[in-house]
Design a protein around this nucleic acid. Structure first.
Lengths: 211, 211
DNA sequence: TAAAAAATCAGGGGATACCCTTAGAGCAGT
DNA sequence: ACTGCTCTAAGGGTATCCCCTGATTTTTTA
């Protein structure tokens, strides 16, 4: 079983580098090398690769949009994003727009092959470093705790009630206190967290893993 | 170098099970078995373990608070949470309150030893399954995307503006549309996401990794 | 090209949130 | 006993949100 690979990257060096890395492998067949988004769109159908290694930073088309487009018109195509960027928000967006994997450009041959194997198996492949990064930001760093620890017991209860989408009235009934007291608590929470409104409260709370 | 272990769990079976699993190992010395939070607090100082395996669901004290307390008074103690629950929010809170690792109760002997090694080395240890779970929710699952993909371009812009804690007025100025239009969009977003108010919008959006 | 979905705007009204200020009661540490 | 913090509560006002309904224009999709 031979796997057909195509690569899109506007840097000739990267293109050649990956090609060389893969040329030694019998089961891999490189069917396309593109250096722009439009070129990719033009040739992907006829070349019909199983996997596309897609650089995100292309001169003509935004990588995320291109990814979405390719996925929409080529149902069986697996796309592995390759990039120098390891920004979490960026990675998330790629993965949410159809990418099956994400690799940094420092990836070695063996890892590349592992990634191929994974995506062909309908699994998602993330480089270990990237996984870690996503994890650590998902968990929320310890430094940020300093803000939230300052909330009192009662304020935390009110916070949780706000997160339940309850109104002031409902919160007051739940906690057996006056609506006015609830408002006071909410104001204090806002001021402690530096939030302008309840939305801000919930945002900070979630970012710091309190909910 | 012998590692001293203590275990807190209110289920005798679990307590015995872990004890048996570890008894075969030379380098491990079990110095304490507790079946409640208070018992743990009472004996932890004198038993002085390197690592505490801590069940989260205790009859007397909330596991998260206990963890925080123990960490505050025993600086060198490593705590590995053990639990049947694999709820993401729960895990996050444990890790944010001082836990050095998180294991499910189906953990095998070898994995337990790996976890010990990791935490003694000041690393965080998470079971692979749990890592995956945290990752997938961090990225935003494909299933849940079905909800969010339904938001139109404009609605997403309004959503982001709401997340920035802007008021309707401010959003309208930012997007060059009427405040009334903003309200319409917000209403539609709420209805699509099943939220009762802006807080609910932000909650679902963040849970699905859109922000 | 017709039909459906999205984006725009609006009126009006009730509900709720937001803001500022003040203040008493209870409890813990110095 | 004094200080500081928490929890409680209220008055009074403004801004904003929430909700329903209805409508026009543009874009997308079938």
């Amino acid at each position: 079983m031979i796997t057909k690979i195509a690569i899109t990257d506007d840097h000739q060096m990267v293109l050649k580098g990956i090609e060389t890395m893969l040329s030694e492998t019998q089961e891999i067949n490189i069917v396309g090398l593109y250096n722009s988004g439009s070129q990719t769109l033009d040739n992907i159908k006829s070349d019909n690769p199983d996997i596309l290694l897609l650089d995100i930073n292309l001169p003509d088309i935004n990588g995320i949009d291109l990814c979405k487009q390719l996925k929409a018109t080529n149902k069986n195509l697996k796309i592995i994003a390759i990039s120098n960027y390891d920004e979490v928000s960026f990675i998330k967006r790629m993965l949410n727009n159809g990418a099956d994997g994400y690799l940094l450009k420092n990836t070695e041959r063996l890892e590349l092959l592992s990634a191929f194997k994974a995506v062909l198996n309908d699994e998602q492949y993330l480089q270990r470093d990237i996984e870690k990064k996503l994890l650590s930001q998902s968990i929320g760093k310890k430094t940020s705790n300093s803000l939230l620890v300052k909330l009192t017991r009662r304020e935390k209860e009110v916070l949780e009630a706000i997160a339940e989408e309850l109104t002031t009235q409902e919160i007051s009934e739940k906690l057996f206190i006056s609506p006015k007291t609830v408002e006071t608590h909410r104001m204090n929470i806002m001021s402690k967290l530096g939030a302008k409104n309840s939305v801000g409260i919930i945002k900070t709370a979630m970012e710091n893993g309190l909910l």
